[in-house]
Design a protein around this nucleic acid. Structure first.
Lengths: 226, 226
DNA sequence: TCTTTAATATGACAAATATCATATTTTTAA
DNA sequence: TTAAAAATATGATATTTGTCATATTAAAGA
């Protein structure tokens, strides 16, 4: 079993506040898991009873809407924690987590985490700040969905994917989403998303090679996204 | 100066966890304010350096979008706290707060609140749970904006206003929003909002008397909202 | 490899929504 | 009270977006 004390990823999450003793204890009670691309980590409505620490890989957090379509609320990547909100609220998770690539995650049971809340103020504060950050992000997102056009949202999302996950050697976006997933991030129909990508391509703003997307004119995209 | 120990409103917020001693100390450092309808409590980007406890009245939390329109992110009413997120993140507020009716609020300086975080675990936990609740709400909201039609959102919002703020003796919604404000809650153009209200009226789902709105067929509205 | 299935792409059209113009009503303030 | 301003309402029209149909291409299995 891998040791939390030596895990670099920990430094990027609220867990960085844990003491050596807490980390040693954590190593004993956590469980490691390999999640294959496309597999579900947890599903909306489930009782998770703990948090997941992402050691490697990216997953999407989705929510089913009344019309049966999934909406991608957020992408989460290594160094981040999953399931904090539901654990604190003591409720089932309100989102599903699905791996977008092969992942390594560690599960930490609720009993262990709740102990940190009591004894380690810095940890509490870190978690609170993370959730506050998520809330601010959600507010921004909400206003974008309410006020921006699909085209603006697509441009913005492409820039976000570029800034957050970077690009490959051939300049294509490192994170590969299907058109369907991209559409469900920006909140539109798959066909509309495909059509707009095609428009951007014709205008020379991006380049499409199969699933690969290269941002060719970032300034123009920024202008569209406002 | 009114005493926090005797303030009933406190029981409805995270402040209910405070001890008698903490409350007495709080009474000394808080400041009371009367806010008239339409007045701004704080504005997006401001440094607030504390939280507001709403003793009476309702306000809207808005965010300016790139196109210059305000979007109403949330309505907040007596018993709730304002400015928690920004205080914890140690950032300027990301939303503006504007009174929808005359309000009584108390301002509690940051230094005081941060002390509770250190010493009163139950208070911390209450605040965390509140913010987690806000986050869940924001997620729901986001998906609605992304996936539902304007008509569905209008129906949903009318039901929400009814459930949350109740009705007057004449059955009209207690909270009175302008058409413009209603539109900026559901994320649409004012004219579209007016037109749909008019449609609902013609269909007998609601009744319009000037600013007053009566929900006449709640089940039908629920069906539309899904 | 070939076959089947899924993903991407595009056209044609329908529906939803925004915009602009303008009328009417209500509110505000002189 | 009356004039001016703001809010509400509605028509006409343009734009955006969704839906359905159907290619085309890519991916997955047998």
């Amino acid at each position: 079993m891998s040791k939390c004390e030596q895990c670099i990823v920990r430094e990027f999450s609220s867990l960085k506040a844990l003491t050596k003793e807490e980390l040693i204890k954590l190593s004993d009670c956590k469980t490691s898991h390999i999640i294959k691309k496309g597999e579900v980590i947890f599903e909306e409505g489930e009782n998770v009873n703990g948090i997941y620490c992402i050691k490697d890989g990216i997953c999407k957090l989705t929510k089913l809407s009344a019309n049966g379509k999934d909406h991608i609320v957020k992408l989460v990547t290594k160094g981040e924690l999953l399931g904090q909100r539901s654990m604190i609220s003591d409720e089932p998770v309100n989102l599903s987590a699905v791996a977008l690539e092969d992942m390594q995650v560690c599960f930490i049971p609720k009993s262990e985490v709740m102990g940190y809340f009591d004894k380690n103020n810095q940890f509490s504060m870190n978690v609170m700040k993370t959730i506050c950050g998520d809330l601010k992000e959600a507010d921004d997102h909400m206003v974008n969905l309410a006020q921006k056009t699909v085209k603006e949202r697509l441009a913005e999302t492409l820039l976000y994917l570029h800034d957050t996950f970077g690009e490959n050697k051939d300049n294509s976006l490192k994170i590969q989403l299907s058109r369907d997933e991209l559409a469900s991030m920006i909140g539109t129909a798959t066909e509309s998303c495909i059509r707009l990508l095609s428009d951007f391509n014709k205008l020379g703003l991006i380049e499409l090679n199969g699933k690969k997307i290269v941002l060719k004119d970032i300034n123009a995209l920024k202008k569209i996204a406002e």
